[in-house]
Amino acid sequence: MKKLFFTLLSLGLFITGFAQNTPQIGDNLMVKSPASQSYKHIDFPKANILIKRGVVTRYKSVENEAVVIDKIETKNDGSVTVTLKKKDGSKFFGFLDRVEADYSKALDAGELMAAL
């Protein structure tokens, strides 16, 4: 009886863990630092655009920033693109309201992390 209970419990936890990988509007995420010098799966502006606008080229202002999923699009190839906005309502780098990101690739690369 105990084995059956623990089997059903672990199966239920596995199913709920798998279901949480799909994004939903209003989910809270955290932007983390990129593995390289720039973000590959979040569409932040390139360094030359930031320099022209007078913003420091490092992405320190967006690291550990809480963001909310505003819009979800599924493309023909099956990839999921999400539109992110800051949770506090301010703008990214002082001029961007929203940015787009490839959801699964950004999570796998560690650029985005689910907020607790």
Rank of each mutant, 00 (worst) to 15 (best):
E63Y: 15
S79N: 14
G17C: 07
L107V: 00
F6Q: 07
A35Q: 14
V99I: 13
S33K: 12
K91I: 07
Y103Q: 00
L9I: 03
M1I: 08
H41K: 06
I51E: 15
G12L: 12
L4M: 06
R58M: 08
N21H: 12
E65C: 15
K105M: 03
S38I: 09
I42L: 12
N21A: 09
D97C: 01
D97M: 06
K87E: 13
Y103H: 05
L9N: 01
S36Q: 13
V56R: 13
T57F: 15
P23Q: 04
L11F: 06
K86P: 08
V80W: 05
L112H: 00
T57W: 15
A109N: 06
Q37C: 08
K71F: 15
K71H: 15
G54F: 05
A35M: 11
T57E: 15
V80M: 09
S90E: 11
P34D: 05
M30F: 08
K87I: 06
L96M: 13
Q24M: 07
G89T: 06
D97F: 08
V99E: 00
K52D: 14
I42Q: 00
A35L: 14
D27F: 04
I25K: 11
N48R: 14
T22E: 14
K105N: 05
N21V: 07
F18H: 09
I42C: 02
G17V: 01
Y59F: 15
A109C: 01
K52E: 13
L112A: 03
G89I: 07
F92H: 02
K3C: 05
F95S: 00
G17T: 08
A66T: 13
S104E: 09
G94Y: 02
D97S: 10
D43T: 10
I49Y: 12
I49M: 12
S61N: 12
A19G: 02
N21W: 10
K85M: 10
V82P: 03
D88W: 12
G94I: 05
V99R: 00
